[in-house]
Every structure is written in C-alpha cells, then in structure tokens.
Design a protein around this nucleic acid. Sequence first.
DNA 1: TTGACTTATATAAAATCTGCATATATGTAA
DNA 2: TTACATATATGCAGATTTTATATAAGTCAA
Lengths: 240, 240
Amino acid sequence: MDEREFLEAYDAERFERPSVAVDLLLMSVVEGGLAALLVRRDEHPGLGKWALPGGFVGIDESLDAAARRVMAAKAHMNAPYVEQLYTFGAVDRDPRTRVISVAYFALLPAALFASALEADRDLMLGRLFVPWKGEAGGPVAARSPGGEALPLAFDHDEMLGLAVRRLRGKLDYSPVAFALLPETFTLRALQDVHEAILGTKLNKPAFRRRMLDRGWLKATGERESGTSFRPAELYRHKSS
Amino acid sequence: MDEREFLEAYDAERFERPSVAVDLLLMSVVEGGLAALLVRRDEHPGLGKWALPGGFVGIDESLDAAARRVMAAKAHMNAPYVEQLYTFGAVDRDPRTRVISVAYFALLPAALFASALEADRDLMLGRLFVPWKGEAGGPVAARSPGGEALPLAFDHDEMLGLAVRRLRGKLDYSPVAFALLPETFTLRALQDVHEAILGTKLNKPAFRRRMLDRGWLKATGERESGTSFRPAELYRHKSS
DNA sequence: TTGACTTATATAAAATCTGCATATATGTAA
DNA sequence: TTACATATATGCAGATTTTATATAAGTCAA
C-alpha cells in the first residue's frame, strides 16, 4: 500500500472528535489600567455573563486565520500584533460539549476600541483587576468603566490571568508596549503603559535611560502640544 | 428556555470538527548536546521518517492527561516536569485529515532514556543541530548517535525549533536545568548543561556565583569521585 | 615522599547597571 | 516678567557582572 492508497483508505471518523475554538484577548491600557474587550453572552451557557470574543475553528481554516476572522467579525478590529497564548483543554470547561480553546492575545491602542464599542452595543471594555503581584498568576476579575463587576463565563478569568502574566513577562525584553501606543508618543506615555501593565511605579530617569539604550526608539524632533508646561519630545518605534 | 433545556437541545454535530493530537518533545542533554526522543513512523504518511511521540486526544480526556498517557504508552516514560509548548494548526500539516496538534515538552536526565530505548526498538535518541544562535528561531535537524540524518515527519522540525527557543528563554530565570541532571551533581555539570542548551560558553566564576545566589542549590558536603584531579562538591536542587 | 599537574574554589579589581537626588531647561499662563 | 509644572540632564552611591588572578585539593608518576 503506498501513501496515496493509505490516505484514501484512512477513516477520520473512527474516533469522536472535540470542537476547537479560538478565544481572543484584545487588550489595551485605558486610563492607567489594563483593559480587555468583552462581549455579553446572549445564549446559554453563561447567559448574561461576559466572555472573550471567540468562535469555532473551521475545518479548512488555520488557527491563526480563525483568530483573525473572529477578530474582524465579532470584535470589529484588526490588530497588527497577534500572538498565540495557550490552549485550554479541560474536559468540562464548556458544558455544551467538549470544546478545546486556543487563546490568542493582541494589543491595541485604546483609541481603536472606541469605534468597535460603538458599532456593537454588546461589546464592553472591561477594566481588569489583578489581585497578585509580579508573575504570581491566578484568575483576574473585570469591571465596567462604571465600576460594576462583570462576571466572566467559562474559564475566561483564567485566560485573562495568563495573558497578564505573559504580558508582564515579555515587557522588558520585547517591544510589545509600542503596540499600545499611537504612532508617536512621549517617554512619559511609554512609562505610563509599563506601569499600568506591571502594576508598579517605575523610576523615571532609569526607565528613560534603559529605553533609549535599547535602541527601539527614534526621536522625531517634534514635541507634544496642549500641555500647560514644558512639552515632551515625541518618539516613534524604530521597527528595524 | 433555561440552561438545562438549551444544553439538551444543543447539537454538537452541526459543524465538521478537526482531530486533536498531542505531540511530545522529550528532551535531554547527551554528550554535551541537546537530544530529543523520536519514533520511527511505521505507517503513512511519512513512512520511514522520524516523528515525535504523539497520539490523539480522547473525547473525555484533558490535554494534559493525553500528554501523560502518550508519554507512558509510546515513550515508556514518566517525566516529573511537563509543560504545554504551543498548538500547531496549519490546515495541511497532516495529509490524512485535519489535525491540530498541541505540543508538550518535558526534560529528563539522559539516564532515563536508556531503558525506554531498549524497551522499544523503534525509538531513537535524536541529537539536535540548531542552526541559529540565541532565540532567533527556525527549524532544527536531528541526527542519530551514529551521525546519520534523521528526516523528520510533519512539522516536527518546527516543533523542535520552538522547544529549543523556549528552553533557552527560560533557562536563567527558571530552575528547568535541574530536570536534566541526576539527584546530585557538580557545578561544572550544571554549567555543561547550560552551555549545551545555549550553544555558547559561559564564564565560570560568574556562573557559579549566579547559581549559588539564586538559592536553588544545597551543598551536600559530599564530593564527586573518580576524577584524576581535585573532586568538586556535589550539590542538590533545593526544591523549596 | 615529593613535586608536577589539573581542576575546584575564593578573592580582588574593573566595568556596567540601577536607583535616587538634584540641577537645569522650556514651555504655559497670570 | 515671573511663577509654575514638567521635561531633560547629570552626579553619585550601591549593587551586580565580567574578567583576571591567586590559592586549595585531589591524582599520579618519579
């Protein structure tokens, strides 16, 4: 039997197969704190709770393509930076049927969330409350901008916790923070983003020196406007 | 319709579902170089090529449980430290049918491979050749102890590349290297393991001080034997 | 028994990085 | 023109890392 014959005779139906989904962690820094895009569940299970935008993976669709499709269709967004986070495969994580979910996470400037939130009234920007320091880990809770608790469906609190941990871990050796900022930004804005992600205050001169030494920044020569004090220089992420 | 009624009416068969597998990266350091356990494929596709030990995930089995089951059944091993690596989901990565594979990786002392290799003659310890420095990334090739190339099936060369990258990244802030050493070991042996993983030479006094400062080590008071020079002190991993 | 040899272990000097304090610069606004 | 707030620059102490060098402790052979 050669390979062609083998493949024709192969019976993929022999074993029962799980469903595979992708869930998206679309995160940003809003008003000095981490936030993630949530969608109100309008079906069981978890009716009325809040979930990460997600959807099933098509049989002829790669995982990455599914993540991008769901991002456009359910979150009205198109993030330049998307990364696979982890695959959640507990047997009972979804009461409907066996669902294995591949979590992806993306970082977006806060300004990009506004149009999505307007286009779809079931979307919500959940402010995240991280009850641990550093990379200790554990679930994370969400609240609405008004301060009401947003109960999370499935294991999505654990997914958010893992995303925060991964983000904190990558922050100082990887240029991820730039995905959260507009094209040009001040060093102060960059520091604010770092502090929001880490949940700690940082030393200003040391932070500035470290960032400039990394070689990730290019000075534009322009300055911010609209301040009532000395305006700071605007920088740009040098992608080279 | 309440949640119970909804779940009873839920039809999981509406969409065609992919198969989900786990593949295992069982790695060690052998004779100063990285190595991984491979199994000869005795079926199409990739008949005669070499693959990572793997198997399909049962419908009532968590991903982690599937990884442990496959490790015992196909690799005759039981690693204490197992970690999920990444999920590979390209549409055409397996010509039989759509297979999404969750890769797990584990580290084992070289001595543990010997009995597995004897128990199953289709197993092979593949020595890895990493054609890039640091964490650049890309596929990795394998050769037999005798030096013959071991062509890899599916996308398993990419999986090995990602495993090496992850391992290098975690090495100096996580006590992973101890999983590769016997119960007691010298500082020189620990440094050899680090150098094999990183593919570079390290400074000896600096390495020694860093390791001792980490607080991961406990001196046993014993010394190695069988050397023709000054024997080094034996240490033990302080798991606390 | 003794001294050459090899590697382990300890210590010291030099370079680098980090945190903290303070001084100077540059814009707005009264 | 001056008060004010923040940006930017600089100096310094302490910690950490690299590099070099010295000393210790075994084996082995003469």
